[in-house]
Amino acid sequence: MTEGVKVVSATVPARQSTAAEARPRNTAAERGSRSPKRKLRAPADKRKNLEILFFVTPALLLIAMFMLVPIIQAVRFSVYNWKGFGPLVDFVGLQNYVRVLQNEVFTDALVHNLVIIAGSIIIQLPLGLAIALLLNRKMKIQGLLRTIIFVPYVLSEVIAGVVWFQLLQPQYGLIDTVLAKLGIQGPAQGWLGTPDLALWTVLIVLTWKYLGLAVILFLAGLQGVPDELYEAAQIDGASWWQIQRKITIPLLGPTLRTWGFLSMVGSLQLFDMVWILTGGGPANSTTTMATFLVSEGTKRQNFGVASAASVILFIVALILAVSYQQFILKRDTQPDTSRKRKKVRR
């Protein structure tokens, strides 16, 4: 059936060949295998373009509709004073941006996001690496351990948050009870209720939730390190610690750097866990940029301010992503090491 279709489409629109040839540069020429059909090339080209259009359009449309349009709308809303009803008339220029940037709650939220980015990487990198090295030996229960360590990552942040919220209850929660048995008194307002401790408590819960991802990714990276290197190093008399420091960790570099990027992007968008554990409180000590813009947008209907905040969040994310790319990931895009690694992987 497909054969018939093809013949028809290839022979009928012979006249359109000039038009089709004029616009798209003839990439079919690159395909040596198709040279016997050279006469039919131009109509086939048109058909090819239609096929491409057919395959790519649904995905592009969906992204345009639900990603591009809302982002453009966010930029548009951000220059209006708009409470969510009526037309966009009250043009205020950059005033919403000024309001957001002068709002201490937002600037604190930005600082919280940065603390969580730094804290996540500083805590999870060595810990994840240590656990990955620990698990990267041939143990009978290795598979089971890997599964277990990955469980928190698969749970939703909401479920993890609700369980931890109960564990962290002041006095009656498991954690305070255990600490009391050890003779340590938990904070009177609870770990999440004390402004100075709340952000760090959230950070610890996030570590619990996301350490498994780091371990799994690092383990995969470790698998890419050829055994011969270890053997050679052992023959040269290197100690276990020297081998890790001089061979494993440098070769794990690309994995570590990519994980760092993922972790950073995730920390910037942090919302669920904070919303469940503290709702941004106490006294705004755990607000993130995302919780700020959601509460401005939904609780106070300040759509203009919320949109300005989301544009700022995006700009911060973009600056961080580009500088990460420039200063840290750059090494990996240099062809020599990364290409070799890719070959090994497949």
């Binding site: 995905a59 709308q73 969510g84 947008g297």
Partner: peptide, 24 residues
């Protein structure tokens, strides 16, 4: 170029567009 559109899409978390998305 089309592939780059999708790669750039990775940079846009739903959070950024959440308010207009909700209205849309």
């Amino acid at each position: 170029p089309i592939f780059m559109v999708f790669v750039l899409g990775l940079l846009f978390p739903a959070t950024v567009a959440i308010v207009p998305l909700f209205i849309l």
